[in-house]
């Protein structure tokens, strides 16, 4: 993919803008639209275009997690009020709200008992720059948990939001990890563990033993910080699993 790199404030030339049948255009992160037809970059990044969806966005690696509706996050309960929990998604930002009944098959009498410090795998259900972020522990459209809910046991590790995104990309048709991260697949062939990745730069790992849990978490953290390529990841996983 020959990606073009834009500096903040540069204009995206109108020739590269994708054309859709409806004549609409979807702008993702890192771009802003100034009527009538100017598209400016607001950050440094490489331009990516999805012609099918007539969407374009700038990809930028670092920075703080910004909530967006539909993102899966790992939230930590900060404190409880009458019928909501206040949870932190990233440090030093205002707390997100989690309704105490926003869980699968939760009712007034039967709801999860969470204390401050507990972790919840949740979905961002509402966010605006004027209001508090709201999250939910189930899919409110279907009423099913879909993997979300309180995370018991295990341990959470901090990673960069960009690496979290790569971890969540899944595998492509060719069976290869789209994000170029094979650590979890490689470890999963040898030992059993559970994992949950939050877009807010947290990954939760649980396995039979503390040692395995920490090994997996450390592997992920080092792969992120030292920018391991696929080969290096395979090598390091093999090395780490020798001790487990």
């Amino acid at each position: 993919m020959a990606s073009t790199i834009f500096l903040p404030g540069e204009q995206v030339p109108s020739e590269v803008l994708p054309r859709s049948k409806k004549g609409t255009l979807t702008l993702g992160p890192g771009l802003r639209h100034i009527p009538p037809a100017t598209v400016l970059a607001t950050t440094l990044g490489s331009l990516h275009i999805d012609h099918k969806k007539a969407a374009l966005w700038l990809e930028h690696e670092n920075g703080r997690y910004q909530p967006a509706v539909g993102d899966l996050v790992i939230a930590q309960i900060h404190h409880s009020s009458v019928d909501t929990w206040h949870c932190s998604l990233t440090p030093h930002t205002s707390l997100a709200l989690l309704n105490q009944l926003a869980f699968e098959s939760a009712s007034r009498k039967n709801r999860p008992n969470l204390k401050s410090g507990d972790l919840v795998y949740a979905r961002v259900s509402r966010c605006s720059k004027w209001d508090d972020v709201e999250i939910e522990g189930f899919n409110s459209a279907t009423g099913k948990a879909e993997g979300m809910g309180p995370l018991k046991g295990g341990m959470a590790f901090g990673i960069s939001p960009a690496f979290a995104r790569r971890l969540m990309m899944g595998t492509g048709k060719d069976g290869l990890a789209k994000g170029g991260v094979v650590v979890l697949d490689e470890v999963g062939e040898k030992v059993k563990f559970e994992v949950a990745v939050g877009r807010n730069g947290r990954v939760w790992v649980d396995s039979g033993s503390v040692k395995t849990t920490i090994t997996v978490g450390r592997l992920l953290q080092s792969a992120d910080e030292e920018k391991w390529d696929v080969e290096r990841q395979r090598k390091e996983v093999k090395k780490a699993l020798r001790d487990v």
Binding site: M1, S3, I5, L7, L44, G45, S46, E59, H60, E61, N62, A162, R166, L176, A177, K178, G179, G180, V181, K227, D229, V230
Partner: peptide, 18 residues
């Protein structure tokens, strides 16, 4: 420009191998 573009390339480097 060279410094910033270098950073952006490095950030997208994983795409090449993935």
């Amino acid at each position: 420009r060279q410094a910033l573009e270098g950073n952006a390339r490095e950030a997208g480097a994983w795409r090449g191998v993935g």
